[in-house]
Design a protein around this nucleic acid. Structure first.
Lengths: 363, 363
DNA sequence: TAAAAATTTGTGTGCGCACACAGTATTTGG
DNA sequence: CCAAATACTGTGTGCGCACACAAATTTTTA
């Protein structure tokens, strides 16, 4: 029964009242130099650390947080950070943390802008943002800077210096591109080609896609053993299946040496579908994200590898970091790169089943 | 500012005193049927959930937990679950959780037995055990059953039914063997051979090694495209480097078709060293665990893949689950299989750097 | 039917901390 | 040198809950 040191114990040791200790701890001033010295010494020698439970209970304050994410009704990927946020919330709700969601249509700049304004009006104490539109996100973050509102970036990193940025949580996109290249290279011989495909509207307004492409290309240009050419392509509307089919047909006719495709978004399953339709099941496919359709194709051996971006964990950690920052006054590591999980048929279930991840919630 | 519902609110709504509500919540009896009904209804309609902070604070009780692990002064692997336990502890120490470590020499049955006895004498409220010796662990767990002491198994699973087992946390060894086989198969052609090597003294008293071997063999016997023979071997003393060299020399001379080696323990780096000494750098090597020596060889491209057993997380989750079980009265999922991480040169740093994992600590 | 016993209910205290306020010591200025 | 201003210090209350104990009510018994 190691007795924990309380403020009262410090006060006794220093020969002052608990109130004085409290003043020193919170730097509220109104403490004589002599008393402060005695208290500081007692704190040191008894190795005091506050009982956070009691502290929070006494604070009796709520913290409002805004979460700006794409809507998850069309794209299963975006339901995962949301789920992570909601689960982390279970862990910290007794600490007074409240989250409001602001979700925008993934291709709708105006909607994004609108949601940003709603957040600015709402007076939040911290913001979680998925800055998938580079320019618009930058101007929003500048507003937050002016408001002294701290924020966390998840999923996509805008690598600008901000005073009030708490941290970035997500993948190292550049290295995920490199890893994708390595995985694709397993099945590709000297002299053959590989293709990198972005299925996205505004590719070059999306930093993470640019970074993935760079990593992918750098891997192949640094390969000593084989010479493999990289074909770059993008297709704006991933929901237009017949267009997608035409697109791949044309690309593959132009480059018959292509043996593998790297899909930089979570739409790998659409690519496989298009390839199926044009009877090209022979190509290696490496994609991103464990959404149901992709995992099924992994099991069916139509996708070779998926790289997991840990979207669930991104949301979870965003809340935890905000909690640490706001309440525990702990400044976290500024760039938190989540693991680049290599998912294949043999280990897929251990990633897509999230039952374990929900357990570690500490109330 | 969503006002949280307190016991006081329930009492008011039900027209009774807070004491009565408390009695209903904790099923302490001494409540009339009428009062109980009113309280239960109020609890339902107001959707009460207790403020755990306040609850724990008022309990003012400590929980003693024993952790039985191999010593970590010879084997870096075992320092990781310990580290996980210590970090989880930071998260829950304010809830009154205290851990004592009992560490035994990894090859010393007597020492194991001795540590078990110390735990039994110590009156612990829960136990974390690494049951690497099957028989001896079973008899220890039976003692815990008699004492009504709940426990968590980590790392190795003894798949027996126990009444007081909280859960198992660790890898699915069988499937990790299968995964290892798949990874090794990338570099092996039809008609060639692969070897599985156990570097351990008491192989067949260690359930996880048996399971890995089975998974490994099952993969190759189910392979439709190629026919690859599996050579099974074990070497008792991993610290005897010259013996190890002799051992591999003999094995590889007997089976010159061997193109890859699967090492079922964390001693892959010793295998590579032995292979280096007999000038066989051409073999593919797949091993386990991100200990420094292994990671270095991964970066040097002398080990092709490592499978991460997440030992840190095992320790971390053990504490969290015990916390949930003892304090929050939540019975967790009985078998928590951690992901089978595929680690290679390109993503190694994202696994071996544990700075992020330490952040999510709540509290 | 009254007293004793058993059952049910309400009140008060403490967990460790944050913060308000009252109380005491020190400094300043006329 | 004394009052007023200022600087410092101690005490008390509440956060929501668990639990002990006192008070009130009902039931049992003679």
């Amino acid at each position: 029964m190691t007795q924990r040191i309380r403020i009262k114990d410090i006060a006794q040791k220093a020969g002052v009242s608990p109130g004085t200790v409290d003043r020193v701890l919170h730097e509220r001033g109104n403490v004589s130099a002599k008393a402060r010295a005695k208290v500081k010494e007692a704190l040191q020698s008894l190795d005091y650390s506050p009982n956070v439970l009691a502290s929070i209970l006494a604070y009796n304050k709520n913290w409002k947080i805004a979460a700006l994410l794409p809507r998850d009704d069309h794209d299963q990927f975006w339901s995962q950070p949301k789920e992570g946020i909601l689960n982390a919330l279970k862990a910290v709700k007794d600490y007074g943390i409240i989250v409001d969601f602001f979700q925008f249509y993934e291709n709708d700049l105006k909607d994004f802008h609108h949601q940003c304004n709603l957040i600015l009006e709402g007076q939040y104490e911290a913001v979680i943002i998925t800055p998938i539109f580079t320019e618009q996100s930058l101007s929003f973050l500048e507003c937050l800077e002016l408001n002294n509102t701290p924020f966390v970036q998840i999923n996509t990193l805008l690598n600008t210096e901000f005073e009030h940025q708490i941290c970035y949580i997500g993948q190292d996109s550049y290295h995920s591109g490199k890893l994708g290249a390595k995985l694709l290279a397993f099945g590709v011989e000297d002299g053959q080609k590989v293709m990198i495909t972005h299925l996205e509207e505004l590719v070059y307004n999306s930093q993470h896609l640019i970074d993935k492409e760079q990593g992918f290309k750098d891997f192949f240009s640094a390969l000593p053993s084989k010479s493999i050419e990289v074909v770059t392509s993008h297709f704006a509307n991933p929901y237009h299946q017949s267009g997608l089919r035409q697109f791949f047909k044309a690309q593959l006719e132009e480059h018959p040496e292509i043996k593998g495709i790297f899909v930089t978004t979570s739409r790998g399953f659409r690519v496989v579908k298009a390839l199926d339709e044009i009877k090209r099941q022979d190509l290696k496919v490496v994609g991103f994200d464990l959404i149901d359709e992709n995992v099924q194709l992994l099991i069916d051996e139509k996708i070779d590898f998926l790289i997991n971006q840990n979207p669930y964990k991104q949301g979870y950690l965003a809340i935890i970091n905000i909690f640490n920052f706001l309440i525990r006054k702990i400044s976290p590591v500024s760039h938190q790169f989540l693991p680049l999980d290599v998912v294949m048929k043999e280990n897929a279930t251990y990633y897509s089943d999230r039952k374990i991840e929900e357990i570690p919630i500490v109330l």
